[in-house]
Write a protein that binds this DNA or RNA. Sequence first.
DNA 1: AGCGGGACCTGTGGGC
DNA 2: TGCCCACAGGTCCCGC
Length: 284
Amino acid sequence: MPELPEVETVARTLTPYVVGNVFAWVKPLLASTVHPMSLPLENLAGMRVQAGRRRAKLLLLDLEPTSETAARQDAPPTALVFHLRMTGRLFTPAANAAEGKHTRCVFGLRKPDGSETRLFFDDTRTFGKIFAATPALLEQWTFWRNLGPEPLEIDASALASRLTGTRAIKTALLDQKVIAGIGNIYADEALFRARISPLRKAGDINGKECAKLLDAIKKTLLQSIAQCGSSIRDYRDADGNVGAFQNSFAVYGRGGEKCRKCGRELQKIRLGGRATVFCGHCQK
DNA sequence: AGCGGGACCTGTGGGC
DNA sequence: TGCCCACAGGTCCCGC
């Protein structure tokens, strides 16, 4: 499900509901949803949500201590990290709402006025993870440590230096160590906009093409963020709203249909195990 | 190094 | 209506 624009949208919509609130209790409903390296989620008790943000496809709640936690012996988590994977959803349910069939964890938070609010983590396919971490723990997490740069924050030369080797450019874009946050949708969409075939060898993309590709990546991601992401089936933001960028797809999910640029039939292949759609005429 | 395949899960949609 | 198969926005691991 969520790639960079979707996680960004969830972070933005969730933040107003949680910032300033203090974790009071937690109810894990599926043990495997808690990352094996995570601190016990119970350690969240007394920590206040200071900010919400996104890194790659991860959503982070930055935490700060309160008087409740000041005397604690254990190291309290300084961040609560969520990886939504394919079907993870974070939202604040209505006060009387019951847990759903796919609710994997419930967090109880206390608002400054003393009233309680809850945070649900729902995840149909159960691939998602919750990780209560300290900075040291995050650094021990290989996936985190190896994350590549944010696509919206790098320049073309930085991208060029990371695109090496003989593997397909699309495979490289999906590799979170190369560049973080791009998934199957935005890899296909950006390559179409840059008029680059997904099958080209990453190391063969020249400087000019690299600049064009990065420009296409940034524009695609920013346009999607502006439209609150893409909703194919599961994705919803923290308010339960769908995104709109799926209406702007040039290639994703359009195999066999006509290229919007040249009218020829879009090809659908499998590349690195992922459905890949592109125009064999427009993309070289 | 890089590829394909499978695994992890549940649900949905198409074909028959 | 129902069954079976293919497939789904992510990542990891294995063997070649």
